[in-house]
């Protein structure tokens, strides 16, 4: 059955998602922060986590941005093949972002020309669209702060590289991020595809729930959940800690997505996200 959705409706929906994502911390992230607060013994780490949790409360209650860097908004669209849009979908999304950011009094952080720079505006959303089966339209807004985006990296491994080499790379990216990009981090990892697609996968991995598959013993060796768990353990041994002041919590989660790749290659991308991992979705 064909479903029709008006572009104007999409604009409204996207605007609302912007406000929600930027002002209401994701419940899985908040839960994990609270759990980390309980576990931390290091007094500075505990205080830093306390401030982070308090900040989320104030932001939600007073409709303030969780962080002034409301980021470069990344929009993920899953368009069901049986959905028909009345109007201009792309423009509707762009307008929704502008409207939402204006409504939320969020910062204009986007430079039109990356070389000439100039005054920042709201225009410049990145849209990742995918076509899926069915008659639903799913839209996700991920406001990506750039303090952490700046720490992200891509490495094109040889296809014969060992799992240990890949793990070392991921841990090294977190190590080199150090205290600068607002730890505790959520680490998105994209394995496979091509140079561009690995980067995309690493970012999309941030959308996965941050508690998925981290329990010990639940997943067989060599699988993604096992690798996520091992990496999280290794990363937390770095003791960078909240605000970089030491402690057990250097990362809240490691999320991996993989995809088929070429016999000659093994792209691995790491996308670093700060503790304020923000996103909101809706399914129409």
């Amino acid at each position: 059955m064909i479903k029709t959705i008006k572009a104007d409706k999409i604009t409204q929906v996207v605007a609302d998602l912007c406000v929600k994502a930027n002002c209401v911390l994701r419940s899985d992230v908040l839960r994990k922060l609270k759990a980390a607060y309980k576990q931390e013994k290091n007094i500075r780490a505990k205080k830093a986590l306390e401030a982070i949790i308090k900040n989320a409360g104030i932001a939600q209650k007073e409709k303030l941005a969780i962080c002034q860097d409301t980021g470069l908004p990344i929009v993920f669209i899953e368009l069901g093949q049986d959905v028909r849009i009345i109007g201009d979908l792309k423009k509707a999304v762009m307008r929704g972002i502008e409207l939402g950011y204006k409504k939320g009094n969020f910062r204009e952080s986007i430079i039109r020309d990356p070389l000439k720079r100039g005054k920042p505006l709201y225009k410049g959303t990145i849209i990742h669209a995918d076509i899926v089966r069915g008659s639903k339209l799913k839209i996700t807004v991920l406001p990506k702060g750039f303090g952490c985006e700046n720490k992200s990296q891509l490495k094109m491994f040889n296809p014969t590289a060992s799992l240990d080499e890949i793990k070392k790379f991921v841990v090294d990216v977190v190590r080199s991020s150090g205290p600068d990009a607002c730890p505790p981090y959520v680490v998105g990892v994209g394995i496979g595809g091509a140079a561009d697609y690995a980067g995309f996968l690493a970012k999309r991995a941030l959308l996965k729930g941050i508690n998925s598959g981290h329990q010990k013993g639940l997943s067989p060796k060599g699988t993604v959940p096992e690798l996520e768990r091992e990496l999280l353990f290794e990363i937390n041994k770095l003791h960078i800690g909240p605000m970089g002041l030491g402690g057990k919590t250097t990362a809240l989660a490691v999320n991996i997505e993989n995809y088929p790749t070429h016999i000659a290659g093994l792209p691995v991308a790491v996308n670093i996200n700060c503790h304020a991992l923000r996103s909101a979705s809706v399914r129409l």
Partner: peptide
């Protein structure tokens, strides 16, 4: 150092 990523609180 200011509380990092705590812009609402700092306001």
């Amino acid at each position: 150092l200011a509380p990092a990523g705590c812009g609402a609180l700092i306001s």
